[in-house]
Design a protein around this nucleic acid. Structure first.
Lengths: 337, 337
DNA sequence: ATAGTCTTCGGAAACGTTTGAGCTGCGAAA
DNA sequence: TTTCGCAGCTCAAACGTTTCCGAAGACTAT
């Protein structure tokens, strides 16, 4: 697997190797005749440019780091899909890393990305504290956070409007006739959850409802977590007619627990999620939920990052996308008896 | 974001830059005193080695290409998760690409990987013909195919034993009392599906059952495809008591169609899948299915690839893993009335 | 014919690292 | 005292590109 270099074809074509380089890059100062001959030789000799050598001199690898907590999570893998698409359209490739939701891992991966000289990194932070852990490294690598609202932090991010999404969610349930709505899931910790629960509270106050929380103390938001908490919830009679889950994964856990307890959804209880992960659209599940515009999130993330790379001095941008509600089958109208 | 190089520290430490390099790499011919001073300086000056320069001279990027058809597919994202874990444990990073199930895309991505000088590529092929499209490129890059059985092709692959898995599946249904079992899904095209349907047929013959196929002519295996085909299936009275879906995604489509037709699963019809994607374990779905050992698949893929990279001359390896059956709730025992 | 301009190409430096070969000084063996 | 070996370091080449600068030749204008 030895390399055929630009010098080899230069020798074969009887020109200098700078001429070959220029031929390949489409420089105008090369005659059609020699260019043709060079390109011909390249094909014959199976030449492929060595990108790492090019990166060396160009000081750009055309690589973007993508650090996620867990690529097997459906939300992240879908995001990764779109990010790769957009990046590739812009001439970049993705180097993927899983931080496993560990701040140390995350930091060490970030350093690795610096060492690898990727042009920038897209970070789905492990926790809201990620910014603090990484702060000292950030000046050395253009970075964009996605999914977390870093409010008054001087770094770029793109996220959905979690506050508004939650607000929309309770409005929706209100219109269906629900007056007792439980908020289920994490409340503290990440700004994401903080904003969602704030939006919930604000909507409740606006509509004259009494807010009630059921807090998940677990740090991870797997289905299992939601399931365990939901078991607790269902161990005593339910006051509410609807529950608003902080994430779709939580909602899935509720679904499971409800199934086991014989609680029918939506007949006995309406269930609303947040994120619209792919699982939610599956048959038999049909979770109605407030959707994060994942494709848009992805393309804005890479566009913002590429902008930042292009003009280094430019400050930071905060982009906040508006969510939308997708109706499926887990919420139903309720008569106000 | 300008770079602190090895020369900067050399100047600061008052030594030559080769001394710095040797200090960093733990070479024995450097005195403890100078090594200490150098390392100290590195920390102070925020030095991080430039990996691309190193790759240049070492002729190794410590990068592995991972080409999948669609990272948002739960099977592949789970595999990618394990692959990344194993690769990182071995000192490698992953550059991820989506071929979008297109042979041209796949080929162009493969060329890109060879231009990027990744040390090897792990390929989840777009089609069984992928080998033909890539054949001319293969000698130029260590590659391992995963998921497809390339039988008599001189390239390495690792896959599950699809034949045996299908065989096990019908045996399982037989033991539950089922005598009329429909095979549902793709049959031609990929060797994967060919082997599965062969395993089904063999088991049927062995057990004295009459095989019946319902073939999916669509090239992609999305839920929607399974759904459409299942609608067709349910438009006339069912002769079978069980259906064996070629993939879990197909099974999910059947589930959806059944739901709409009012066909209860497993009461009216037992359903068995293949792959054990994460979705199958979801509440309300609980698809029983034959499982591909994804974690093992992943670690064998990277181990095999790394072996191949280490000794280039070594031939190829074919590894075929045995599947297992995971019981959930979509199959039930049937009385032989 | 001379000067000037353009076109087309070659030479060489630079990117940041690793590493083989060579150099220096010091202690020990002869 | 001379020679040798060795520890500890420096020099310089090499990896495969891109690109600035300059040179040679052809062509045009005077």
């Amino acid at each position: 697997m030895k390399q055929v270099t630009i010098k080899d074809i230069a020798r074969a074509a009887g020109v200098s190797y700078s001429t070959v380089s220029r031929s390949l890059s489409g420089s105008p100062e090369i005659s059609e005749k020699t260019r043709k001959r060079v390109l011909e030789l390249c094909r014959e000799m199976n030449y492929t440019a060595n990108t790492v050598a090019r990166s060396m001199v160009m000081k750009s690898t055309k690589l973007l780091g993508l650090i996620v907590t867990d690529i097997s999570n459906p939300f992240m893998s879908e995001l990764a899909y779109y990010i790769d698409g957009q990046a590739r359209a812009r001439g970049y490739n993705i180097v993927l890393c899983n931080s496993l939701r560990s701040l140390e891992q995350e930091r060490s991966l970030f350093e690795l990305m610096i060492s690898r000289k990727v042009d920038g990194v897209i970070l789905l932070p492990a926790e809201s504290e990620s910014y603090n852990t990484l702060e000292s490294l950030l000046p050395r690598m253009p970075t964009i956070f996605v999914g977390e609202n870093l409010r008054d932090v001087p770094e770029s991010f793109v996220t959905v409007d979690n506050y508004r999404g939650a607000y929309m969610g309770v409005e929706y349930l209100y219109r269906l006739g629900h007056r007792r709505i439980l908020y289920f899931g994490k409340r503290k910790g990440s700004t994401t959850h903080q904003l969602r629960s704030e939006g919930y509270r604000a909507a409740c106050e606006e509509l004259g409802l009494e807010p009630r929380y059921m807090n998940n103390t677990f740090s991870s938001t797997s289905i299992r977590n939601g399931y365990q908490l939901a078991q607790q919830l269902f161990s005593q009679p339910l006051r509410e007619t609807a529950v608003f889950a902080a994430t779709d994964t939580n909602a899935l856990g509720i679904l499971q627990a409800a199934e086991e307890k014989g609680i029918r959804i939506p007949e006995d209880l309406s269930l609303l999620g947040f994120d619209n992960i792919r699982d939610s659209g599956l048959p038999r599940i049909g979770l109605t939920t407030v959707e994060q515009p994942k494709k848009l999130l992805a393309s804005m993330a890479v566009d913002s990052l590429l902008d930042k790379i292009a003009n280094d001095q430019a400050g930071y941008t905060h982009r906040i996308l508006t969510p939308s509600l997708v109706e499926r089958t887990t919420c139903r109208a309720v008569s106000r008896a």
